[in-house]
Amino acid sequence: MSYRSYLKLAFMTKPIKKAATPLAPRKSPTQARSVATVEAILQAAAHILETEGLSACSTNAVARKAGVSIGSLYQYFPSKDAISRALILEQTTALVEDAEKIDLQQGGRKALEDLIDVAITHQLKRPALAKILDAEELRLPVAADLKRQSTRLRKTVHDILSQTDMPEGANDAEVMADLMGIIKGLVDAAGARVDTSAANLRKRVRRAVFGYLDAGE
Rank of each mutant, 00 (worst) to 15 (best):
M1A: 14
M1F: 13
S2G: 15
S2Y: 11
Y3A: 12
S5E: 14
S5G: 14
L7W: 03
T13C: 03
K14L: 14
K17W: 10
K18C: 09
A19K: 11
A19S: 14
A19I: 06
A19L: 08
A20I: 14
A24E: 14
A24Y: 12
A24R: 11
P25N: 11
K27H: 00
P29C: 00
R33F: 00
R33L: 00
V35L: 01
A36Q: 05
A44P: 08
A44N: 10
H47T: 13
I48Q: 08
E50T: 11
T51V: 11
E52A: 11
E52Q: 13
L54H: 11
S55D: 12
C57W: 05
N60L: 07
A61G: 02
A61T: 07
V62T: 13
R64A: 11
V68C: 06
I70L: 09
Y74P: 09
Q75F: 04
F77M: 10
P78H: 05
K80M: 06
K80T: 04
K80P: 02
K80Y: 01
A82E: 13
S84D: 13
I88Q: 12
L89C: 10
E90P: 03
Q91L: 09
T92L: 02
T92D: 09
T92I: 01
A94W: 03
A94Y: 02
V96E: 00
E97K: 03
A99N: 00
A99E: 00
D103W: 09
D103S: 09
D103L: 06
Q105H: 08
R109C: 15
K110W: 09
K110A: 15
A111K: 05
A111Q: 05
A111S: 15
A111V: 06
L112S: 06
E113R: 07
L115H: 00
D117T: 08
D117V: 05
V118D: 02
A119P: 06
I120C: 04
T121Q: 04
K125V: 01
R126Y: 10
R126D: 11
P127Q: 06
P127W: 04
A128C: 08
L133H: 12
L133Q: 12
D134G: 15
R139D: 13
R139F: 11
P141G: 14
A143P: 03
A143S: 13
D145A: 06
L146K: 01
K147M: 02
K147F: 07
K147I: 01
R148Y: 01
R148K: 02
Q149K: 00
Q149F: 00
T151S: 03
R152H: 02
L153N: 01
R154D: 08
R154Y: 03
H158A: 07
D159Q: 12
D159K: 12
I160C: 07
L161F: 04
S162D: 07
T164N: 15
T164W: 15
M166S: 13
E168C: 12
G169A: 09
A170R: 03
A170L: 05
N171I: 04
A173D: 09
M176R: 04
A177F: 04
L179Q: 01
L179K: 01
M180H: 02
G181Q: 09
I182F: 03
I182G: 03
I182Q: 02
K184Y: 15
L186R: 12
V187D: 06
V187Q: 03
G191L: 08
A192C: 05
A192W: 08
D195A: 12
A199Y: 00
N200F: 06
L201T: 09
R202S: 13
V205H: 02
R206W: 04
R207A: 14
L213N: 04
A215V: 08
A215Q: 12
G216L: 15
G216N: 12
